[in-house]
Write a protein that binds this DNA or RNA. Sequence first.
DNA 1: CGAGACTTTGAAATCTGTCAACTGGGGTGG
DNA 2: CCACCCCAGTTGACAGATTTCAAAGTCTCG
Lengths: 229, 229
Amino acid sequence: MLQFSLKAANVRALPSQLLVEPAPTHHSPTVLRLSPRSTLFLEGYARAPQYRVVEGCVALSQSLSDGRRQIIDMIGPGRMVGIGVGERNRCSAETLSYVTLEAIDSVDHAELERGLEEMVLRAQAHATLLGRKTAPERVASAILDLADQFLRPSRGCKRNTICFNLHPTRGDLADWLGLTVETVSRCFTRIKKAGLIDFNHPEIVTLLQPATLAEIAAGSRAIDNTNQA
Amino acid sequence: MLQFSLKAANVRALPSQLLVEPAPTHHSPTVLRLSPRSTLFLEGYARAPQYRVVEGCVALSQSLSDGRRQIIDMIGPGRMVGIGVGERNRCSAETLSYVTLEAIDSVDHAELERGLEEMVLRAQAHATLLGRKTAPERVASAILDLADQFLRPSRGCKRNTICFNLHPTRGDLADWLGLTVETVSRCFTRIKKAGLIDFNHPEIVTLLQPATLAEIAAGSRAIDNTNQA
DNA sequence: CGAGACTTTGAAATCTGTCAACTGGGGTGG
DNA sequence: CCACCCCAGTTGACAGATTTCAAAGTCTCG
């Protein structure tokens, strides 16, 4: 759709943002800071450079010719981006929040293999989600996954509760979970009404009953709309 | 569901078959021959040994607690089994045909990484299939994938046509494609009636119009029931 | 205050799943 | 050798979950 020539450390944004400042150089590794909705690399283009996510959320996605989009993975702090994408990238990478990246120069075999194995395991678990879970189960799984990856920054709104920032929009979640925006929204309200999570602002979610949520995510329990517990 | 202790080179079958003969030793690598519906390793157990498929079809699958099953990947000749399964296997491996395996002793880094990347790429493509493709598109994709992996043995029933053995049953395909047996069957007959494939015995399929099938698989074209072309 | 993007909610449409019956081939046993 | 059984596959009718279409509400930002 757009002509693009991406080379290492030469990142461009798709919509209008292009925020690539080398950032204060404390030590050796090159650090990038990207604003939300920046494109790290595009499907079909020359192999992407490799980064490690320091902070924020990156989405990997594939698209069908008619525009249908599938988000393959959500990548949070600590994980690698740009591995397992094939020679000509088989997917695009887009930031869903302000993101801090660290360029990876030396690719340790052991580390690369761990990263690749993690990609495989996550992709396989996601395939099971997409192929066999119901909409509420998918949403419950997504909430727990994101909570796990993005817990740190804003945890503990109140004692005993887990509160975190949901970077992807409902639309992003839909593309990740193989659903539509409306279905995702409906599932969120159902889960909220069941007393399992809470949110006023749709991006800031509090986990009230993570254990029950996990049971639903695993398919071993249905949502009952009998609030409370 | 069953108590199992699988150790390297100690393979057991689930139903009743257990056919593990060391096979004629031409040279060094250990060769295994398994009958259909043998279990290579099970989800949740100690890390599986690694093999290369010489001939036949192996399915990797995950199961939800209530029995829902998702086949993650179909593995044919030349590919590796037992990589990217995590410490405690996150998936089971089952043979869908008579299978010849070659034990892998030396794990070359480059080779392992290629194998892992292939697993990632296939899993991601499959996630897009599961999340965003319609039933006919999924079945078309599956036929082409399997044709590509299993073409060799019985190719060329007639000149110009591609004919191959479809190892997975309709049920296996359903679990792979996130559908039901009935839907898979209906899609096969639709694709057959559209003149894109042919089969008398449900396991032996002839590709009549691979190009059209590819367009359908990619989502850039719908099935028209106006036979012929 | 208004524009636009995102979210939520409702009602109708549709694809796929569920249930059920029928078919055909392979294997077993008389 | 033939009858019978069993399982995979096919087909039809119906139900249900999710999508589609439509509209209103909310929040941010200029």
